[in-house]
């Protein structure tokens, strides 16, 4: 697509695009990656701590402790989103908060809050998955194909 566009662009346009590109501040990639790595890692540490809490204090098995752990992280994110602090933190942390389940929870809660003004049915329900929907759809689709490949490999063996 991008290549097609470039082919269609006149030489003047291409020249300007290069001209403008040279004057754009670069994205602070190294900084973003470092912060994302550290914050994402810390969220995982927090998740691990919650899981250990469920295992050692509430007597869950390691397998069973997974679901309540995720639920706690989602609840924490939902609260932080509702209080209006999550977006500020996420703007700083970038992929560090977007990749773990916190990013998914934030995308749903923020959309639900934003469209509350359009009512519960057309607003909240209709738009809640506006951002999260793509994650669910492509998550399910890729899970299907991975499962299909695994099944074929198992049969082939």
């Amino acid at each position: 697509m991008a290549n097609q566009k470039l082919k269609k662009a006149t030489p003047t346009m291409q020249k300007y695009q290069q001209f403008a590109k040279a004057r754009e501040p670069a994205r602070p990639i190294l900084r973003n990656l470092t912060v994302a790595f550290v914050v994402g890692g810390l969220i995982c540490v927090l998740g691990q701590a919650i899981q250990d809490l469920f295992i050692h204090v509430f007597g869950f098995s390691q397998k069973d402790a997974g679901n309540p752990t995720v639920a706690v992280l989602i609840a924490l994110t939902a609260m932080a989103t509702g209080l209006g602090v999550f977006d500020k933190f996420a703007r700083w942390a970038g992929a560090g908060t977007a990749v773990p389940v916190t990013g998914f929870a934030n995308s749903m809660v923020s959309a639900a809050m934003e469209y509350r003004t359009e009512g519960f049915v057309l607003g909240v329900a209709g738009n809640m998955f506006k951002l999260a929907g793509s994650v669910i759809v492509w998550g399910v689709v890729s899970a299907f194909f991975i499962a299909l490949i695994r099944t074929l490999l198992v049969i082939g063996r």
């Binding site: 754009e24 977006d87 703007r91 942390a93 934030n106 934003e114």
Partner: peptide
């Protein structure tokens, strides 16, 4: 933000441009 970009409480990192 709501009309053109993301919900206001959605946390997204934007480029410096």
């Amino acid at each position: 933000e709501k009309h053109y970009r993301y919900p206001t409480e959605y946390g997204a990192q934007k480029p410096p441009t």
